[in-house]
Design a protein around this nucleic acid. Structure first.
Lengths: 341, 341
DNA sequence: TGTTTTTATGTAATCGATTGCACAAAGCTA
DNA sequence: TAGCTTTGTGCAATCGATTACATAAAAACA
């Protein structure tokens, strides 16, 4: 009673059948003007709202999509989600968000939950731990549910993806540092079993080689994306016999930690030492010493992912197709790496 | 065929009825051990997944909740959502996120969308524009769907809320600034038609009165939560005949802008001027001059909101009850306001 | 006026899972 | 052995909306 008007209620009130009501509400041309008007008015009066669940059950389309990310409380993921939402909202889709907290079990669980919920598509940035067992992902493909990876993708048949050109970003950044006069460039790497981090490493490597700079294994440090690890890494680097004079960190947070520690050591940035981050987290711009970084256009990435999904949905004939979109990274050269203006 | 096993398929395969299958899967005691085992095995073999939509339609519970926020790409809202998600995930709920972009029409639209989707509850931080027409909210209450406001609430019957004690936070902050020797405290206010901003203002006012400091209307500036407005506000303040020597900004972003501009004017912080923010955005901690601010415990706020929702759901007898939770704010006193250690 | 076509509506199945009621078979009691 | 329980299943309705098919009424036509 408290607000559960169905088409049957409307039908009863007007002494017609639910079928007629349904048709009237859906602008079916086979309904007389008078009936349609009556139905619409009554529906309005009775405060009728279509039950999407019933619709979804019958049509097999839930008009929900799922997004799986490691976590939402970082600028990058929140922005991508926002992009997806903006791209999909006009089409009537709602976004269901799941977090993995970098836990692979949680990831599997999330995929299953979304499948149970009959989502029409899944957007996913895979968690850190690379899984050998792709079974849970295969199932999505088998069910013919569009799957779109963004940022942290996994190379797979029939799966679309939206990423930036991580290799290029890394190459250009390294090149930039070299041009600033830094030949001893340390590198903070993420987990290289993830494609994006492998690509970034290759970009760094190639730029050094192209400039005839040998790779120094001591300069390559694997870190997690947080401030503390950046600080610790600097400590290690400065203890080297031949310490570097630049850091390219694939995490803005680690870059920040590095800068803090370098300053504490009385090292002048950028005069004595250049630092470059990755991700364009808001704080990089706000710092008194603004931090150079790579912008990944998360908002655009999300919107593009939404686009890819919509295309896949609308071209049901080649649903099995894949579409790998690669966005261009943007180097934001700020104070922390600017010696030569 | 591609992955649509239903209980009917299982029933057919075992030459029994769907009812039996359903009961077997749901541990109904009226099923023989042998049948149950057979059903479970077959279900597993056929890779059966329960269709939540069908379940939701029949039970009237979708196991989805909706969250409506102005935007998700700020630390505060992303963290609250994360808290809600963490609190609700163990209970099997999924979270659907909607953004209003501070647009009241969008807010109404979002509420309707969520109602159509048959969500089991709605969490909401109202958008800036205060609406006179509460009709869309009333409808949620009428439908007996738990509604929980967080942070930006609206005082209403039958609606629960989780907030921090904004009045207290503001009072304590002002008191702190006074204790640091600042008697001329400017105040950056948000839109005071929102309760939280009105409460904060009252806290500021009361602290001044309790310390026999007259209120100077020139010191009260209404701002939006961004860096630029903070900068502009400082410009106005410094142009006064009798400029202030402290700013209490109800936005961290504006506080940051203020600090930037003050420094450009050669004003020393905290020696000549103290600044206090609100919200504990991550960057406040990272700055070289760390910014004092108020922590709103967004994660806890989200978890608490989830708790309030669960209690309401489980006490169906007094669903109409309300539960106003007020969390304690935490003052994070950092460099930007520390004269006296 | 009788027949055909059109128009508007009703009937009933469907989407997938659950559940009150009915009922057959088996077990138990006297 | 007749009668009563218990146990395990089946039947069929339900949740709300849609839609192929059937059909009555009205309109058009000859």
């Amino acid at each position: 009673m408290s607000g559960k008007t169905t088409i049957y209620d409307i039908a009863k009130a007007l002494n017609i059948t639910a079928a007629t009501v349904s048709r009237a509400l859906n602008n079916n041309p086979k309904i007389s003007q008078s009936t349609r008007k009556l139905v619409l008015e009554t529906a309005n009066k009775m405060n009728y709202k279509q039950n999407k669940l019933a619709l979804a059950l019958r049509s097999g389309k839930s008009n929900n999509v799922g997004v799986i990310v490691p976590r939402i409380n970082t600028n990058f993921f929140a922005s991508v989600i926002r992009g997806i939402e903006e791209g999909l909202h006009p089409e009537g889709y709602q976004v269901i968000i799941c977090q993995t907290h970098e836990d692979e079990n949680r990831e599997v669980e999330n995929v299953n939950t979304l499948l149970n919920a009959q989502v029409d598509g899944i957007f996913m940035s895979i968690s850190n731990l690379p899984k050998e067992d792709n079974h849970y992902i295969e199932r999505v493909i088998q069910k013919n549910i569009p799957l779109i990876f963004f940022d942290r993708k996994k190379e797979m048949k029939n799966v679309s993806s939206v990423t930036i050109d991580d290799y290029l970003a890394s190459y250009q950044t390294t090149q930039h540092l070299i041009e600033q006069g830094c030949k001893k460039i340390a590198y903070f790497s993420g987990d290289r079993s993830l494609e994006i981090y492998e690509d970034r490493y290759r970009g760094y490597e190639k730029a050094l080689l192209d400039n005839n700079i040998p790779i120094n294994p001591d300069y390559i440090i694997s870190i997690k994306s947080n401030v503390t690890e950046g600080r610790d890494a600097v400590e290690k680097l400065l203890a080297l016999e031949n310490p570097p004079n630049a850091i390219f960190s694939t995490s803005d947070f680690a870059a920040l930690g590095a800068i803090q520690r370098l300053k504490e050591h009385g090292i002048k940035i950028p005069e004595d030492f250049c630092v470059f981050g990755f991700g364009n987290e808001p704080f990089t711009k706000f710092m008194e010493l603004s931090i150079s970084t790579v912008d990944q256009s998360p908002l655009e990435m999300g919107k593009m992912a939404a686009q890819v999904f919509l295309e896949k949905i609308n071209n049901s004939d080649n649903k099995k197709s894949e579409n790998k979109v690669v966005l261009m990274p943007k180097l934001l050269i700020r104070q922390s790496s600017t010696r030569i203006a």
